Amino acid sequence: MEKIVEQGLLYDFYGELLTEHQKNIYEAAVYDDMSLTEIADEHGISKQGVHDLIKRCTKTLQSYEDKLHMIRRFEAIKCSAEELSKLSEIADSISKDELKKSTKEISSRIIEELT
């Protein structure tokens, strides 16, 4: 399951950099959960060709992530936003100075990820 989630994230962030043919086959495998045989029959290519294309696309998408780190940055910002959300829930139970300090630290991390 984790592999499918990873492939989905890679595609969400970098899928537009693939060709239409690559996108169609990758989407069929990752999002539509079609078998290699079904995809091969639908696109008129061999099962091995489908397997190789999916593997090559995943490698290409991963290389974009290795260079650009968009998913890593997204996850870090998401984590910081979740911390802010939790902090707002307990804001009444902590001191104003502690709230201010925590908010400033989290917002600094977010800004750092965005620059």
Rank of each mutant, 00 (worst) to 15 (best):
residue 109 R to E: 07
residue 22 Q to E: 14
residue 60 T to I: 13
residue 111 I to C: 08
residue 62 Q to L: 15
residue 79 C to E: 11
residue 1 M to I: 10
residue 32 D to T: 04
residue 29 A to P: 01
residue 28 A to I: 10
residue 51 H to V: 00
residue 19 T to D: 14
residue 71 I to S: 12
residue 58 T to N: 15
residue 89 E to G: 02
residue 20 E to K: 15
residue 86 K to I: 04
residue 7 Q to P: 12
residue 9 L to N: 12
residue 10 L to A: 04
residue 52 D to Q: 05
residue 63 S to E: 03
residue 67 K to V: 08
residue 92 D to K: 08
residue 17 L to P: 07
residue 110 I to Y: 03
residue 108 S to C: 14
residue 68 L to R: 14
residue 113 E to Q: 13
residue 82 E to Y: 00
residue 4 I to Q: 13
residue 79 C to D: 02
residue 36 L to T: 00
residue 17 L to I: 02
residue 21 H to F: 10
residue 68 L to S: 09
residue 68 L to N: 13
residue 94 I to T: 11
residue 61 L to G: 10
residue 109 R to V: 11
residue 9 L to P: 09
residue 77 I to L: 11
residue 72 R to C: 09
residue 27 E to C: 12
residue 115 T to C: 13
residue 68 L to P: 14
residue 4 I to L: 12
residue 54 I to E: 11
residue 18 L to V: 06
residue 33 D to R: 10
residue 29 A to M: 10
residue 97 D to S: 01
residue 22 Q to L: 12
residue 12 D to H: 02
residue 41 D to F: 09
residue 76 A to W: 07
residue 103 T to E: 07
residue 79 C to S: 06
residue 33 D to I: 11
residue 14 Y to G: 02
residue 10 L to F: 09
residue 62 Q to Y: 09
residue 106 I to E: 01
residue 5 V to L: 15
residue 98 E to I: 03
residue 100 K to R: 02
residue 53 L to R: 01
residue 103 T to G: 14
residue 112 E to W: 00
residue 37 T to V: 04
residue 67 K to W: 15
residue 99 L to Y: 07
residue 23 K to S: 12
residue 103 T to H: 13
residue 75 E to R: 10
residue 43 H to N: 06
residue 78 K to S: 01
residue 93 S to V: 09
residue 85 S to N: 11
residue 47 K to M: 03
residue 2 E to W: 05
residue 16 E to D: 06
residue 107 S to I: 15
residue 26 Y to K: 03
residue 90 I to P: 10
residue 15 G to I: 05
residue 32 D to F: 06
residue 41 D to N: 08
residue 104 K to F: 11
residue 66 D to S: 03
residue 115 T to G: 15
residue 8 G to K: 13
residue 45 I to P: 08
residue 23 K to T: 07
residue 31 Y to R: 12
residue 15 G to V: 03
residue 63 S to C: 05
residue 74 F to C: 12
residue 75 E to I: 06
residue 44 G to F: 15
residue 81 A to D: 05
